[in-house]
């Protein structure tokens, strides 16, 4: 388990450092599709659904958003795989009584 804790800490540290460079160099620019839309004169429509959170416009807001999003992603993938693993064990034990 120790190595997984190290991996999580490594990701958090790299994310915290990477965000500094993001806000220094790229936060104001769009990605490839946004740039394509901009150069084609396409206006983005309003979203049909308003999400509860945003990525944040400053360093600390983005850091917290990333940690929340990463945590939710971890929880959903972990939870799904645990359920799948338990179902697989139950199915196998039913096959070989």
């Amino acid at each position: 388990m120790n190595r997984y804790l190290k991996a999580v800490l490594g990701i958090v540290v790299l994310f915290a450092i990477g965000l500094v460079f993001y806000f220094m160099f790229s936060a104001t620019y769009g990605d490839g599709l946004e740039k394509t839309m901009e150069e084609s004169g396409i206006q983005e429509h309003g979203p049909v659904y308003t999400a509860p959170f945003a990525y944040g416009d400053d360093y600390f807001a983005a850091l917290v958003a990333g940690l929340i999003g990463g945590g939710i992603t971890f929880g959903i993938v972990y939870g799904y795989l645990r359920v799948a693993r338990r179902k697989r064990s139950e199915a196998e034990s039913n096959e070989t009584p």
Partner: peptide, 18 residues
């Protein structure tokens, strides 16, 4: 299981850094 979940979380935060 833990590897896949940590990788997913890592890709999520990496996608935020343009």
């Amino acid at each position: 299981i833990p590897f896949m979940a940590i990788l997913a979380a890592g890709i999520f935060v990496a996608q935020m850094i343009n």
